[in-house]
Design a protein around this nucleic acid. Structure first.
Lengths: 147, 147
DNA sequence: TCTTAAATAGGAATTATTCCTATTTAAAAT
DNA sequence: ATTTTAAATAGGAATAATTCCTATTTAAGA
């Protein structure tokens, strides 16, 4: 579900943020990215249509989004921080060979773990949420069929 | 289960690594740390008994350990990389307030998820392992009892 | 003990991120 | 519609984390 600039503007205001052009275009690009981009990658793409945008603003804005719950950081072992504005509960598949991080939705798994955690309470911990990373290798199906 | 220096030496050799003094003391300290330390933290502690050890060596050695499967990086949102030499399958509790990362063992949860993943195969993915982070706040039980 | 390939120390270089401040801008007040 | 003002931005400097470089040292095998 695509979000228009005016919808994003409303969203920012609803979160108590000043709806600046930079925030709108950063949110728009992040929301429509599926590769969990770094600040630098977003910056490079944004520069095309917003030549005067600065990298510092991209960093600061992403941090603002994380603080206000509009985005989250995706944990990654590869140097830079990566971000995600898709906040529906989902997990991630980490392809160890290609370094891709791909969204993984599975309500059955989700329900299974929620049920487990609700049943078994962990001493001294108030659970807010949980994340799963599934690590593995990409299997090229076409290649497999040929061989 | 504590590991002696000579056991660590054997372990390094078994992995095809030269059993240098630096590697032995770094492994020993990491293996006996439960806070998932950063390279810098290990370095500060190691300096006490090994004044000439260098930070570069600590970084390089940790990387060598990860490559050879003697340790792994623990995903974290807080600046520096953190490491763990405890390789028995376990997950992590992230205390959002105290920033602690604590090991979490639960064979029931482990079995539940393994059974699920075995049953449901994900197209084009050969699963190697998976990690769960449970995020939450620390509840101080004593304080709770008083109030 | 000697040889040698690999590892280390120490510091320089690089990368990622945060910080600083003069200028600009969104939005509230007029 | 204009003015006001507090907050946000651009641009670059500063900092933090990590990697790289190379002369020296060392583990392990001959």
């Amino acid at each position: 579900m695509e979000k228009s600039f005016s919808e994003i503007k409303e969203l920012l205001i609803r979160k108590g943020l000043k709806a600046t052009h930079q925030r709108i275009v950063i949110y728009h690009l992040l929301f429509n990215s599926f590769e969990h981009p770094t600040a630098e990658l977003l910056f490079d793409k944004l520069k095309i249509n917003n030549p005067s945008i600065s990298l510092g603003t991209v960093y600061k804005t992403l941090d603002t989004f994380v603080q206000t719950g509009l985005a989250e950081k995706v944990l990654s072992e590869t140097g830079s921080d990566r971000y995600d504005a898709n906040l529906s509960s989902h997990h991630h598949i980490y392809y160890t060979d290609t370094k891709e991080i791909v969204d993984f939705y599975d309500s059955e798994l989700q329900d299974l773990i929620i049920a487990f955690l609700n049943k078994k309470s962990i001493p001294n911990l108030k659970i807010k949420d949980f994340k799963i990373q599934i690590h593995g290798e990409k299997i090229d199906m076409v290649e497999n069929q040929i061989n």
